[in-house]
Design a protein around this nucleic acid. Sequence first.
RNA 1: GCGGUCGUAGCUCAAUUGGAUAGAGCCGUAGCCUUCGAAGCUAUUGGUUGGGGGUUCGAGUCCCUCCGACCGCGCCA
Length: 550
Amino acid sequence: MIDDALRRFGEAAADVVTTSYGIPPPPVLFAAPRRPEFGDFATTLAFSLAKDARRPPAEVAAAIVAQLTRDHRSLHELFSDITAVGGFINLRVAPRVWHASLAHILHEGEHFGESPRKGIRVSLEFGSANPTGPLVVVQGRSMSIGATLANALRFCGYDVFVEWIINDAGGQLDALGRSIYARYRQLADPSYPFPDDGYPGDYLIDLAREVRERDGDRWMEAAESAWLPQFAKFGRDALVADQQRTALRFGVAYDRWQSEAELHATGAVGEGVERLRQLGLTYEADDALFFRATQFGDDKDRVLLRRDGRPTYFCMDVAYHYQKLKVNDRVVDILGPDHHGYIERLKGLAAALGYPGRLEIAIAQQVALMRGDQQVALSKRAGEIVTLDEILDEVGVDAARFFFIMPAVESPLVFDLGLAVEKANENPVYYVQYGHARIASVLRRASADDVGSASGASLEPLTAATELALMRRLSEFPAVVAGVANDLAPHRLARYARDVASDFHQFYTECKILTDDVPVRRARLALSLATKSVLARTLGLIGVTAPESM
RNA sequence: GCGGUCGUAGCUCAAUUGGAUAGAGCCGUAGCCUUCGAAGCUAUUGGUUGGGGGUUCGAGUCCCUCCGACCGCGCCA
């Protein structure tokens, strides 16, 4: 296939370098040129050689090509064109190689691009929110990114473990309990004061009603020490359940919902502290226990145990990450935009625990919600929140999943809700889905006989420029997914889906699939089948449906 | 003040991690349906990659310096 062809070229080129220049050849790397007239692949081999060879790159490239065409004539079975252009060596792949590639795709079917199990364990954590309210837009983006990465990593043969951390320890749960209690009292007496640090959202009023329906006036006269734990736990459980329901609706499956309180209860937090103490990376000051974070690049040492002995949030994270680092080869955190100050601390922690470089942190940048020209106000303090559920009601799961991963993770996202629904043709997810539905429609019109024999048909008739371009695009799929998994770059899948759909539409416009010429018809049906399969798989990895009709 | 991320076409974003003349989509303009789905296709307008300097065969990408936006800087979580 393509990789074999490139490898053979690389070996031949290395051979030429060794005999002509007598120096060890550098690795021969290939990239697809931006401009199609430069061919399908290019290598910058001559640039890296120029210095040692003491000749200008253009001369080196020309010499290599001349030598190759003389001594390695068989390369022309694989490459229809090998040219040197100013230092670059450009390759055009022969049609028969594309045909072989397409045959391979058809043979692999839905497993095309999939890698066998590598035995490498990857932990992914994303979406995590405080259990004090419904999920909002930011978590939607975080979950889309995380779930897509998890899919891609699994597809590439990694053992993936996906988890969510429930921040259910600390003062905020008390604030939640007090907020619900205040709403509960307000049901009877509207003048009952609402706490300053309370959560203002209306959703707590519903929870208060539930308590009242269940328990009546039972808590009206009770002491705070009696009602607070009850209300806090009730609120926590209800809101976590609500978040889980939304995640499920969004098509995101977690392997574990890790409770922070549980980490304390099981002694895991204590173990983490003990580990750092054993390593000699802690010290006491002002009656508190500090972690020597500055030794690992952080700008401040960090408190683990407060003056009163209570562990900090970071202390919990020590335990949590220690747990993850111990059993995984790669640990990935996808954090919100307000957590970038946390990166050095966590990376320093990983290094301190003996796992430098094992922890990767991606910051999912913020989402600005737009309706036309109007930015939707999002103020948690004022209680103006737009929940993820509301967004899903408005634009649907498919559009949301696709939009959230469109920009690179570290780029901010402008999400125009009005645009996503009002005008379908401006919505890129529809463009891609339409491509899939269009193929399905053609396949429905074709005879069962034609479709059945298509995958075994001769592919020789596929010679048009749009046919070659589409075959080339499909062959990129394994490399695209591998790049997504390796570089944590889910947005490339969205772009790739768009490119596949676009190449198909061009092919469709130029080449009639259901033509009277039987060999041509079957070859084009084969290409359509492969495109449908790759498109469906790409959309599936993103978490978007591939409709048969729309 | 210190630190982080970012700044690319009117708008939303890419750019294979230092490669060729910086690319797509949307918007605009002009075309293409007696033929497999026109939610499509073709052509075309649009750029000093925030400004300036540096590193080298070669810079949107790396270094320095300004300008601007967002965010972080707690013994909160």
